[in-house]
Design a binder for these strands. Structure first.
Lengths: 190, 190, 190, 190
DNA sequence: GATGAATGAGTCTTCATTCAT
DNA sequence: AATGAATGAAGACTCATTCAT
């Protein structure tokens, strides 16, 4: 018995995400993922219960990494505006470094399979981020609206605009994202 | 010769959209669509070349309907702010009346199949909407940024927030969308 | 009600033969034949009971034409050798003028569908040809063997050699068929 | 890892040949072959790339076996006449032992699929046979014609006559094949 | 742990045929 | 007579998954 080779699990993760970008949910399959990952299809069943379980775990993994990245460098005592901009910048950096995560996340989060999954672990992860916006509301710096809504007004535009750029290389060429962040801020500020 | 039954094409359209909401791109199939539409699977191939062609045509149809709806009631001489709010309201009404279009559009637009499709007809359709934002820029009422970006700041948040509401019934309960529109406006106004 | 358009039947015949040459029995279909013939698939069912019936009728038509051609110019009182050479020459001319018939005939005659069909009309048609060989046997000019066998020794080699030439253009380049006829003759002569 | 069961490949080969005899190229299908071979249809795709690949491999296998059989017992220093008769006898024995190969070969070799395939391996296999005829030409025992043509005059008649016998049991009843061989010889001898 | 073999169920698509006009 | 519409059955092939090694 060999010890579990974590390189294989990673290879499966990566292959899944990359393939999903290329061919989409409609055309992906375990055997294609296996081939792309350089393992046997049966090997996938050592690491995951089944196809659904695999997708969920890949999704959770990416979400966790993203949540982690967005929180980076946040200080509880920093002014809200600074924190919000930091979050936006973190998000942009993260998806800049992992372009493939973008489309994967979009495709996943809209699939009923993933939508039905409410992971407490994930919610927990994003709580510190929400706290920033809650703080802003309490301090009357931000509009009196649910924190999730306020955060959405930062998260969604950035994601979508970045996606647009990925899809058609020449759209929003030379766009200054600091201006985008400011739009987000204008949207939510009181 | 039997005339083509247009009800069938419509049934296929509807079945496709509804099914995609329920089971997603990963699990949908021509035979399931056929069953849901009450036609034989082979009938689908009378109306469409193949699966891909079908999805594209369904997508175009929905996009066209949406574009049409968003343009409704726009007056060229109306003040920009009024027009922008009108567009937002039109969009919300449209997706409120066709909840199933929402997830369908999201899933489609992120699938590589659709992403590769650049339809001139669609672009044309959205041009009058972009014109509103361009006018705003020219009048210095809106930020000096690409019209598509400004419009995205209205379109994306509304779509995403509405989607969030659809997914989990209780999120943003009792949300006043007029406030959302104002956020959009604040984001883009100069 | 229009009168039956015999041009259509001919078009179907021709399309069937040509297509069979191109794609073979394994890949041919009624709808492909219809498209090639420029008619609707349903039209084929006006002229023929079904697929099988159609193939049989096409086969019979070709066989009849071939039998007709092989008999041309035969004189009952001509010397056997002359007649045999005439038959060989007729056969070669016929398949030279209708290259497509060659592969069609070969493919058909080996298919169980056609093999099971014993058409009296066809047998009748080839009787005058067999008579030539029978006469040769009686006159002790030819070997004492069944006429069908003797004729086969003329028919098969010519067909096969011609087929070989069709398949690979360069095989037996510049072959003098008169020499082939002589081989046939040597084989059967007493 | 389970080792590949070579019995299965053989079963597929046999089933293909037998079925082709019974129902022909027009009606054969992978699933029917699978059923006849006692394996799942999907199993066939483990051993072959696709339907075409399968037929080609079955054809090559049969051709190889036939070439092998025809060469048996040939001595380079034997007189040409003896060798030619030996080849004819070998061929007859082979197709006598494998009646099903006959129709299979005929149907295959006339299908465009196989016709397009020129296998060097096969050509190689038949070279020693051609050498016999070339030797005969050089020794002026045989007619001055391409060896392939001379061999064809032995191969084709035997195959076709035997086929005729298979098709209708009573044709050429009690035929002495030694006489057929002599006809072949008479055809080609100088 | 890892994998090729194996398969029943499912994929998309085409088929032969009938129907309504 | 002629044909596009319509479809159940079947086509080739792939899938997710399990098994044996």
């Amino acid at each position: 018995m060999r010890p579990r080779d974590d390189g294989k699990k990673e290879a499966i993760f990566t292959a899944t995400i990359d393939l999903l970008n290329e061919i989409g949910f409609a055309n992906i399959s375990i055997s294609k993922i296996a081939k792309a990952a350089g393992v046997s299809a049966s090997t996938i069943y050592i690491y995951f219960e089944n196809k659904e379980d695999m997708f969920k775990k890949v999704y959770l993994d990416v979400k966790k990494k993203m949540g982690e990245a967005m929180k980076e460098g946040l200080a509880a005592d920093a002014p809200v505006k600074k924190s919000v901009f930091k979050i936006c910048r973190n998000l942009l950096n993260f998806i800049g470094q992992h372009e493939n995560y973008l489309l994967f996340l979009e495709q996943s989060s809209n699939s009923p399979l993933i939508a039905a999954m409410h992971d407490e672990e994930i919610s927990q992860l994003f709580r510190p981020l929400l706290a920033v916006f809650e703080k802003g509301v309490k301090e009357k710096i931000l509009k009196r609206l649910p924190a999730a809504l306020l955060m959405g007004f930062c998260y969604f535009p950035i994601m979508q605009i970045r996606k647009e750029q990925c899809k058609s290389q020449n759209s929003f060429e030379g766009l200054d994202y600091e201006k985008v962040f400011e739009m987000c801020w204008d949207a939510i500020k009181a």
